[in-house]
Design a binder for these strands. Structure first.
Length: 797
DNA sequence: TGAGCATAGTTTTTT
DNA sequence: ACTATGCTCA
């Protein structure tokens, strides 16, 4: 034995920990070592918050709260001591046994809960944890709010009256359900739309207001009373259908914990540490959930950036993060202000813009990165010209060695993608659009999911209705309404009624059709219960029995091939799911995964194409070059925000998010006039542009207004491939990647050419543009023209 | 029951 | 401009 003091051992331990996490900056390391008690990490854009989260979890699992602890580890043997010194001085591996020695109150992987908002973020977290901790990383609960809650509710939902295989309704299902309720309550959709009712309900659920409470709060307000009634009926119907909507997942999970001490105990004892990412986006219900789970251990760490709160319209309350310190006494606050992503210019611009907001914690990002280019503010004369400008910048950038995937175009609203898409197709620039029409929102996909859902849960009335006449089976609304009524009268499920349709007088006429449908469904249900039928086989059985694909040919006048492709795509998703989950597969499991999935999850960053998406979807992503089109008052900030200071702040945060996505170059573009909602309007440049200090900006504008001329603009005629290309870019998965062939440079500067109408001339410059080459040619007779090589039919001269 | 026409409303949407 | 929705009529 050696004779080092316990003080020295504590010091050694600190050195080991500093060494282990040496890659991080001081602030980050402080966050990693602040293990116990409430912790608020204010993490600016690009400040490495995921890294901090991952390392903090790793630290907790390996060393517990060793860094700050005064607990003296037992004496170290000489051997262990030298291992420690070797590690500190020479970076040799530290044996597990020594790690264990140095740790204080470490915890097991499954005692840690890390909650994110997106599947993508959860997946990334999980991946990085597994990279760092090996298989142990797998046991950490790292998942989204919704799937965490779903998991809890599958386990104990019975206590609230749900079965373990309840269905999760998406917005479309909810809407159908609400329409039903409106009908039953005789609420005219024109006076009170299902949309507004649902949004009121959603807000109620976000703030944990149950139907009874809502009714009370409504008082004598007529409108609110109607909504309260609809809310109540809607919940009853959901319960009957054994279904929950997205908000219910959170809300019910909270109720479950509040009402069942044993369940609460279970989770409070299980989770020693709770961490929440993107805390600025949480709503009240989510706050409740987190609070309940972390109450006992007190070890709650939230990470967020109040400046990036852009989901108020969905119920996120920025107050959660602003008041965290007062809600959780003795909170430690750590600011991560060093940015590793952007150039100084970009960061300074972002800082300058966000400074105009009053409601914020206050934080100034800085960076050691280089100053970089000035920010380009370009004024185009139309939205056409704006798209042209962007396409040209991309092409010239690619000609100089950038990849297409270095570029992102972020806009305020999805409709802005249309012109960009057209121009990009014309110029042969490969691109992908994220968002807009989503894969799982396509009609045919929703139909197939509905079939699977009904097989999984025949009580799922909304989805049963969706497919009962899809493909057409001559079962109309009237019949369905009858059956529903009978079912309600008998207290049975609609499916039961349909199955015995011949026994009910009102259904006599359509009974054969109903029975036939029920028989098909029964057959499919039997097949799904059969161990030997794989999900993929079941899926094909559905297509087979329902003749769904054939029905596409007859019922649709547009090309059904797209839809068939989508159906096949879903089949491959099923197969993928089966492969990934081995023997753990179940129909319910697949449906759960599907119901919680979104498009952004499928954003494949390895494909070489320009990516376009809304600023909202871009949160959390980064790109070397970012274009921000439509920076105009009325678009960004939007019309409705202009006279509302609170809304303006939200829009400004959105602008902040947009600017901070850029790593190296940032182009802000506005157009003097643009077509919007069918009419042309002239918008002032966005006020956010004026908020960027002039010295950071380099302004440019397109030449004076002229009708775009062939030769100066990109070719206007459509290529054959256009429709196909546009469609496949919109679709889904890696199969939709477009690779354009490298441009063939037929002509180079200095070549002498002759043109049919312009006569002889000399090529001044040749710049590749997608599939084509833009040539600048000095003609002897007509002066200098710009022409596309493929277009101009030039002859060598 | 389904086709065809008129009408309204179009911000964002991690789940 | 565009499209999703609802309503009417055959």
């Amino acid at each position: 034995m050696n004779n080092i003091t316990s003080e020295q051992i504590l010091e050694l331990r600190r050195q080991v920990l500093n060494k282990e996490f040496h890659k991080m900056n001081d602030r980050q390391r402080e966050a990693v070592f602040s293990v116990n008690g409430p912790l608020l990490i204010l993490a600016g854009a690009g400040s490495g918050k995921t890294t901090v989260l991952v390392n903090r979890i790793a630290n907790i699992i390996k060393y517990g709260n060793a860094y700050g602890s005064r607990t003296v580890p037992g004496a170290l043997s000489d051997e262990e001591l030298s291992a420690v010194r070797e590690y500190i001085d020479h970076d040799t591996a530290l044996p597990q046994q020594v790690v264990d020695r140095l740790s204080v109150d470490p915890c097991l992987p499954w005692q840690i809960l890390a909650i994110t908002f997106t599947n993508k973020a959860a997946g990334e977290l999980k991946n990085r944890l597994i990279n760092m901790l090996g298989e142990a990383g797998n046991d950490i609960w790292a998942s989204t709010f919704h799937s965490t809650c779903a998991r809890m509710l599958r386990r104990d939902g019975e206590k609230l009256g749900y079965s373990s295989h309840f269905t999760i309704y998406d917005t479309d299902d909810s809407r159908r359900m609400m329409k039903e309720c409106q009908k039953a309550l005789d609420i005219d959709d024109k006076l009170l739309s299902c949309k507004s009712i649902l949004s009121a309900i959603s807000h109620a659920k976000d703030s944990m207001v149950l139907p009874e409470e809502f009714m009370k709060q409504a008082g004598s307000d007529n409108r609110l009373c109607l909504i309260a009634k609809a809310y109540k009926l809607y919940q009853t119907r959901l319960r009957e259908a054994d279904a929950m909507d997205f908000d219910d997942l959170i809300c019910n999970a909270v109720l479950l914990l509040e009402k069942n001490q044993d369940v609460l105990d279970h989770y409070q004892n299980k989770f020693h540490y709770v961490m929440v990412d993107e805390y600025q986006d949480t709503n009240h219900a989510q706050y409740m959930l987190v609070k309940l789970l972390a109450q006992k251990s007190g070890n709650l760490c939230v990470v967020g950036d109040d400046d990036q709160s852009i989901y108020k319209f969905r119920g996120a309350t920025i107050e959660n993060i602003l008041s965290f310190e007062s809600t959780f006494p003795n909170t430690k606050v750590i600011r991560l202000e060093q940015n590793y992503r952007s150039t100084k210019n970009i960061l300074n611009a972002a800082n300058a813009v966000i400074e105009n907001n009053a409601q914020r914690k206050g934080k100034t990002l800085w960076t050691n990165n280089k100053t970089g280019e000035q920010i380009s503010v370009h004024t185009a004369f139309s939205e056409q010209d704006e798209a042209d400008f962007i396409a040209k910048k991309v092409l010239s950038g690619v000609a100089e060695g950038r990849k297409y995937s270095d570029y992102a175009i972020l806009y305020r609203m999805n409709s802005q993608s249309n012109i960009l898409e057209k121009i990009f197709v014309k110029s042969g620039i490969p691109y992908r659009i994220i968002g807009g029409q989503r894969f799982y929102e396509r009609k045919e996909i929703k139909d197939m999911i509905a079939y699977l859902s009904v097989i999984n849960n025949p009580n799922d009335e909304i989805r049963l209705r969706r497919i009962i006449n899809q493909p057409k089976r001559s079962i109309g609304d009237k019949t369905v309404a009858q059956a529903t009524e009978i079912a309600a009268g008998l207290g049975e499920s609609v499916f039961e009624v349909i199955r015995h349709a011949d026994q009910y007088e009102p259904l006599k006429r359509t009974a054969p059709k109903l029975l036939q449908f029920a028989a098909i469904m029964q057959e499919l249900i039997d097949a799904s219960n059969d161990e030997n039928t794989s999900l993929n086989e079941l899926y094909h059985l559905i297509l087979d029995k329902t003749d769904y694909i054939a029905s596409l040919y007859t019922s649709e006048n547009d090309d059904p091939q797209d839809r068939i492709d989508n159906i096949n795509e879903l089949a491959s998703n099923l197969i993928k799911y089966e492969e990934e989950n081995g023997k753990e597969t179940s129909l319910a499991g697949f449906l759960e995964e599907v119901s919680l999935i979104t498009d952004i999850d499928n954003f494949d960053e390895h494909s070489d194409s320009v990516v376009m998406m809304t600023i909202h979807s871009a949160k959390g992503l980064e790109f070397p070059v970012v274009f921000l089109p439509g920076f105009e008052d009325g678009i960004f900030p939007g019309m409705q925000a202009i006279y509302n200071p609170v809304e303006i702040e939200e829009e400004r945060r959105l602008a902040y998010v947009a600017i901070t996505r850029a790593k190296e170059e940032l182009y802000i573009v506005n157009a003097e006039s643009r077509m919007i909602f069918g009419s042309t309007s002239r918008n002032k440049p966005s006020r956010f542009i004026e908020e960027i200090p002039e010295e950071l900006v380099e302004r440019s504008r397109s030449r004076e207004w002229k009708k775009p001329q062939p030769g100066t603009s990109l070719p206007t005629s459509a290529f054959e491939a256009r429709a196909i290309t546009m469609e496949s870019a919109r679709s889904f998965g890696p199969s939709s990647l477009i690779h354009s062939e490298p441009p063939v440079a037929q002509f180079k500067a200095g070549d002498c050419v002759s043109h049919k109408t312009f006569g002889k001339g000399m090529v001044l410059s040749a710049s590749p543009m997608g599939n084509d080459t833009l040539l600048e040619i000095a003609f002897d007779k007509v002066g200098t023209k710009k022409l596309m090589a493929n277009f101009a039919r030039l002859q060598r001269a």
